[in-house]
């Protein structure tokens, strides 16, 4: 199955794209998707402990299991205000 990934701020700078699609295996979690991406872009590893995520524009847990067509956003530490 296939999911869309959205990347913001420095994560987008690291990958060079704001959005991409990746195939994942059945039962894969958001964390599995993150690790798949970090294998592709090793500079993402620095965010392993500080990353959080959203699924279909709502807050998610990294342990959530993916569904086909999900839009997953990876959120580096935030700095609004």
């Amino acid at each position: 199955m296939r999911v869309t990934i959205k990347l913001f701020a420095r994560l987008r700078d690291i990958t060079g794209v704001a959005e991409l699609q990746r195939d994942v295996t059945d039962g894969a979690t958001i964390r599995d998707l993150w690790r798949q991406l970090a294998a592709e872009f090793p500079a993402l590893d620095a965010y392993e402990r500080s990353i959080s995520s959203a699924r279909n524009a709502d807050y998610a847990r990294m342990s959530d299991v993916l569904a086909d067509g999900d839009e997953i956003a990876f959120l580096p530490p935030v700095s609004g205000g």
Binding site: P77, V78, S79
Partner: peptide, 11 residues
Amino acid sequence: VWIEGATADPD
């Protein structure tokens, strides 16, 4: 530089 503060976890 991107400013990075808190890990966003509403819970």
